[in-house]
Design a protein around this nucleic acid. Structure first.
Length: 586
RNA sequence: GCGCUUGUAGCUCAGCUGGAUAGAGCAUCGGCCUUCUAAGCCGAGGGUCGCAGGUUCGAGUCCUGCCAAGCGUACCA
């Protein structure tokens, strides 16, 4: 209906251009918006005000000319000029009720479109280091990313969901060493745990696992472990130097194979846990991409060679630098350290080179907002690799500040004091957790009150939407119980009987679904979908309270049933995109 | 210091490419269950849209300055 109206206005503009009222060369961008209140009709455009200046007319005069030039159409019942020069359109309600037929026809596909035209888009999200279980901060990125991906797919993009596994690097070594030390403890070795080690219970769990399978195979005397090792922080030394020395010692004492065993046990265990966690949270991936793989197959080296060849690398102070400052970054960045090791950024360059090589039309990275300073250098890398910086879009998800009632919850992965995603799911359930996370704009700082979210009973807004769906199902059950017949076709022929205010409001909300979906997807704003569903549910609940559906008049009854079934369908379609259940009863 | 993000009702947040009287939930107060589930509905109160300028027919929205909060500013990941 919107598109139809836009076309009509376009025709009016063209004819005014021919008459010379509007200059030929003016680019007319028709802004047609839905009105907020019924007194302004169904649609309104500010076109006359936009063009008034260039046409050298006052807006109301121009509006009159536009209206006069507008072709007749049966769907438009009235056109009004209002306020400073708005043109308001009143649409025929029988034309509006056609949306019910459309929804019935398309079913689960209603709202889906092809604006993405099959373009390949990669969405990388969560990508938390496999050094421990996911916590509630990762949950927001997981929910947000998976809904973005599903939305993009719904509007016609070919979506590749990916998790970048940081299975190389120092943090993983710290984890492996932490596990080994806990293992020594399990063996009965007297042991001092480093200040900078991973302290979570899961570290001990993995250590016990290893001990159960391998017994004392990896046991070494603790005196040898700490022999000539620099002092830890609590002992008056430097914790970083201490842990690095422990890592080096672990590699020596265990040998390459032994160290790899412990390392792999930790990685596999935690990665399996993360995969399982996300699966249960309704998050699916097409690919788990290993950083170590990039190291092993020479991709990092190759990527740096490409930068070298295009003249973006230089040596200074014994390190190799990427001249990112020539491409918009604040300063240049080290890619190979003085000690010959690649920086994290080096493998990230390789990773993005790999993404580019795979031929995605668009690359979407979803990061925690604390990484925002990283964007310019990655964009610089993209350009240095010969691609357009706009190929990459980075979406930031603000970290949620956790509260338990009034009290702020402090979190630190290292100390092991954090609320895990799994704990949250156990407490509030998948549906409420997903709904809560996606409800807010992602770049908005969010106060996440666990007490509120875990209160199963009341104000979880997800129930409100689900309840609307369940209520429709309940009405349909009653229909059967009362042995009332239902004739869908007859109902479709009687849609003109839907003239109540609440019914018209529902029709207009239903009609908005496809354009809302498109916008939510293209602007990467899943909260728009949530807002919409709450509105639709509200319209329905209001209608439910005001009118009986199972009335004696069969035609009215069938028409109303078709309407509420359309509501049920759209609620289901929306909830499905959010990967939230659609209960038939509550 | 510089950069990014944010500042809207008591609280948590919406506000579509600048548009008509700034909205919702929660909380508070007052109504509605012999009718298809009251996890619902109806109503009331509550706002200098951080502050000050500017742009224009028109600014919560755009520009500038200031204030405040969070994050970032590594040869860590």
């Amino acid at each position: 209906m919107r598109k139809k109206l836009e076309a009509l206005i376009q025709q009016a503009v063209v004819s005014l251009k021919k008459e010379g009222v509007i200059a030929e060369d003016i680019n007319v961008n028709i802004a047609l918006e839905r009105t907020r209140g019924a007194q302004h009709g169904d649609f309104a455009t500010n076109l006359a005000m936009m063009l008034a200046k260039s046409a050298k007319m006052n807006p109301r005069q121009l509006a009159e000319k536009l209206v006069a030039a507008l072709p007749q159409d049966s769907a438009v019942t009235k056109v009004e000029i209002a306020g400073p020069g708005f043109i308001n359109f009143f649409m025929d309600s029988s034309a509006q009720s056609d949306i019910i037929k459309l929804i019935h026809e398309h079913g689960a596909d209603f709202g889906r479109s092809q604006v993405g035209a099959g373009k390949k888009i990669q969405v990388e999200f969560v990508s938390a280091n496999p050094t421990g279980p996911l916590h509630v901060g990762h949950g927001r990125g997981a929910a947000y990313g998976s809904v973005i991906a599903d939305l993009l797919e719904a509007v016609g993009f070919t979506v590749h969901r990916e998790y970048y596994v940081n299975d190389a690097g120092r943090q993983m070594d710290i984890l492996a060493t932490s596990i080994w030390l806990r293992y020594l403890e399990e063996c009965g070795e007297p042991m001092r745990f480093p200040d900078n080690g991973y302290r979570g219970d899961y570290v001990g769990d993995i250590a016990r696992d290893i001990f159960r399978n391998a017994k004392n195979e990896y046991r070494r005397p603790f005196e040898l472990v700490v022999e000539d090792i620099p002092q830890d922080e609590a002992q008056g030394g430097d914790k970083e130097a201490h842990i690095d020395a422990l890592i080096a010692r672990a590699k020596i004492l265990l040998g390459t194979a032994g160290y790899r065993d412990v390392f792999q046990a930790g990685l596999n265990n935690i990665l399996d846990d993360i995969k399982n966690d996300l699966l249960e949270f309704g998050v699916n991936y097409q690919e788990w991409f290993s950083e170590q793989q990039l190291m092993d197959d020479g991709s990092v080296e190759k990527a740096l060679k490409r930068l070298q060849a295009s003249g973006h690398l230089y040596e200074k102070d014994g390190a190799t630098w990427f001249a990112s400052s020539t491409l918009g970054d604040e300063k240049d960045r080290v890619v190979i350290r003085e000690n010959g090791q690649y920086t994290y950024f080096a493998s990230d360059i390789a990773y993005h080179a790999n993404k580019l090589d795979r031929g995605f039309d668009q690359i979407l990275d979803i990061w925690g907002a604390d990484h925002h300073g990283y964007i310019p250098r990655v964009k610089a890398a993209i350009q240095a690799l010969g691609a357009d910086a706009s190929k990459l879009k980075v979406l930031l998800v603000q970290f949620a500040t956790l509260y338990r009632g009034e009290e702020k919850v402090q979190m630190s992965t290292r100390s092991g004091e954090f609320v895990t995603l799994r704990q949250l799911r156990d407490e509030v359930g998948k549906d409420a957790a997903r709904f809560f996370y996606v409800m807010r704009r992602s770049e908005q700082h969010m106060d996440f009150d666990l007490q509120l979210a875990t209160s199963k009973t009341s104000e979880n807004p997800v129930y409100y939407v689900q309840y609307a769906h369940a209520r429709v199902c309940s009405v349909l059950r009653h229909l059967v119980e009362k042995n009332l017949p239902r004739d869908i076709v007859s109902g479709m022929n009687a849609l003109a009987l839907l003239t109540e205010e609440h019914e018209l409001a529902l029709l207009s909300t239903l009609e908005r679904y496809p354009e809302m979906l498109e916008r939510a997807a293209l602007t990467h704003e899943p909260h728009q979908l949530i807002l919409y569903l709450r509105e639709l549910a509200n319209d329905f609940h209001t209608y439910y309270n005001a009118h009986q559906f199972l009335v004696d008049d069969a035609k009215v009854r069938d028409a109303r049933l078709n309407l509420i079934c359309a509501v049920k369908q759209v609620l289901a379609n929306g909830l499905q995109l959010l990967n939230i259940n659609t209960p038939e009863s509550m």
